[in-house]
Design a protein around this nucleic acid. Sequence first.
DNA 1: GAGTGGTCTAGACCACCCG
DNA 2: GGGTGGTCTAGACCACTCG
Lengths: 266, 266
Amino acid sequence: MNPLPSHPPGDGSTPNGAAGSTAAAAGNLPTFSPLYQQIKALITQSLQSGEWKPGELIPSEVELAARFKVSQGTVRKAIDELAAENLVMRRQGKGTFVSTHHEERAHFRFLRLMPDTGVPHHPDNRILDVRRQSAPAEVAQLLSLKSGDAVIYIKRLMSFDGAPTILEELWLPGAIFKGLTAERLDQYKGPMYGLFESEFGTRMIRASEKIRAVGADPAAAELLGVAEGTPLLCAERVSFTYGDKAVELRRGLYLTAHHHYQNDLS
Amino acid sequence: MNPLPSHPPGDGSTPNGAAGSTAAAAGNLPTFSPLYQQIKALITQSLQSGEWKPGELIPSEVELAARFKVSQGTVRKAIDELAAENLVMRRQGKGTFVSTHHEERAHFRFLRLMPDTGVPHHPDNRILDVRRQSAPAEVAQLLSLKSGDAVIYIKRLMSFDGAPTILEELWLPGAIFKGLTAERLDQYKGPMYGLFESEFGTRMIRASEKIRAVGADPAAAELLGVAEGTPLLCAERVSFTYGDKAVELRRGLYLTAHHHYQNDLS
DNA sequence: GAGTGGTCTAGACCACCCG
DNA sequence: GGGTGGTCTAGACCACTCG
């Protein structure tokens, strides 16, 4: 509970005593780690372990400072970074909350397909297939699974204003998403990441996408109601939870006749 | 030179006296602006005016603190945000430098097309056309120009390892890029944004892209060496300089047979 | 050794929210 | 009025760079 020595500005103790700079004598790597980074890691642990659940209020800065025996400023800097990474949300006068996918604000962080005209809104969702299967080699590799491990395969079609626009396939590690069925997916309202977070305790915090242009194959063409060969945007996404652990592979085909993938470079 | 009052912690002056909270009596809007935001705006002004040029060292934090009559911590927070926005780069022990597009590090911030295998590298560049013309209506609107204003039109083909992969069209405000010719584009080595920055004093700091899948038209198909109708990624980019001023419209067609558009959602 | 950014602390006060 | 995050200051020390 108290892995950190205190460092009053002028005391005689060794600053950064726990930071690793002395411990790395053999490795010859500096591995200096500031105090606030260590605090950040401790807070992240509590987030990951579920001590504070998505949507909940975490202890105040002064409280955390007391717990970790550091100044409020140090806790503040740690939380600043967590807020910048969207793991946590600050609200002045109220406190700091664990981020959740159950908010309007979060919904369009991972859904980047916007209508060319009009305001963004949520698509209708039709589940086409859900099954448990042995992970194909490529999927296993991208999800860091052993070849042959079980995965849940999901296929779904999403429509904006009745117009089929997104055809998606997902692969999820079977060990984590045990018991995920078409019924539960159908019943659930709101974004799929909200369900993952609430029902399976797995929160997506980061994703990496590779985007290509492809021609619609016969199956996709029929489902999306376009001619075979119609150019589609293909987005292959790997999502990660705490600790950079891959927990989702998703391949989406986007019809971009009246929508576009929005990206801001900054 | 001294638009800011000083705010010692315990003095009797009115804190945030220049922040606008009192000045907005009629408008009823809070419009409270912290000191460090005002400092940030002042530093940004100096960047925009060219007082410190891309690649140059800006004054040290203590020096700026003295100039603006605030504490180093306040200057620090201002620079922190500028560094987060890539306007400035900090280097411990050396100082803070104005960001420039003349660095390896910056080159792939706006070029997101990566090879499916192997390490990212720079494409060869072949200028196909450069001309001065009257801005088409759509271009004028996106660049906030008056319909009929002059624009520079550029068409170029980029190849990776000899394979044509990117076909791009650009529209630049004629008033800013006066004297831009095919020769200067051909002679210039390195990224185009580097030339814009060095030769025309206009630094791109942000861009917004809309991405679609399209079929190759006959002209594009021939230049890229593919069949007509081949699916291509179409990225329409509007770039901005200081003050959110649009200064470039770019439409790129990407052949994604052996490359992909890389995007990280975080 | 001098100068720079980076960390850490302590304390004061402000803006915001709620009971 | 009391609690929360947000701002601002001042001072000390650390890590890094360079002459």
